[in-house]
Amino acid sequence: MGSYFNQTPDEYIRMILRIGQKDADPTVKGLTFAQLTHGAPHLNMPTIPYVPFFDKKFPTKSGKIEFYVEMLVPYHQEICDYQEPIEATASNPLFKKYPLIFLSTHTRFRTHSQYTHLPWLEEINNSGQGFLEINPKDAHDRGIQDGDVVKIFNDRGILKVRARFTEGIKPGIVNCYQGGWDTVRVHQYIEGHPNNLTHQIANPAQSIIPNFRSNAAYYDCLVQVQREDG
């Protein structure tokens, strides 16, 4: 450890906050190291903690929180209301061909694709290998046993992982955690990637909201699952 961090914690704190220097961190400007480490010095911090919209100023046309958003009228989304998914709904003719809703939810063992390849966390999280959570009922209908390699597919692409039976997922829905890697060195899915299956159709209404980047609904995805031999 010493070869990587060869100074004391105090020395690092002085260095990072530049204590006692002209360009000191604003929170400690004008304070000495001795003052900061003895007693309870008052840091140069705002006395009111940051609370979003504490000033009750909202960047909307009316200046208020808007439950009715006039600018979204052209998109018929001026009030919160149910809208049929673009794809993952039983009324979609595609549902006959791809009768399962595919989710790619987050696992608590990584943040999106960060920390994915950390050896300790891989050990906890199925050796880093992606898997398909599937209800045993859906699996039996398809001749799939727990641990079988399965192909998840639709018209956009495929994903191959092992099946994991769980009653924790509703029949009709399957899930494979997002954020795994498929790089030259790291292969966390047997073949393909959850993102091969999802569509990228953004909600057009999002494009006119300030400071809001458009995004697709990755849970809006129909697939079929079949057992892979070998």
């Binding site: 199925n126 994991r164 039976f165 769980t166 009653e167 924790g168 997922i169 029949p171």
Partner: peptide, 16 residues
């Protein structure tokens, strides 16, 4: 459970 996070019971009556 055979794997972490796999609950006991049959959907939707689950315990973990």
């Amino acid at each position: 459970s055979p794997a972490i996070d796999v609950p006991h019971g049959v959907f939707p009556n689950l315990e973990l």
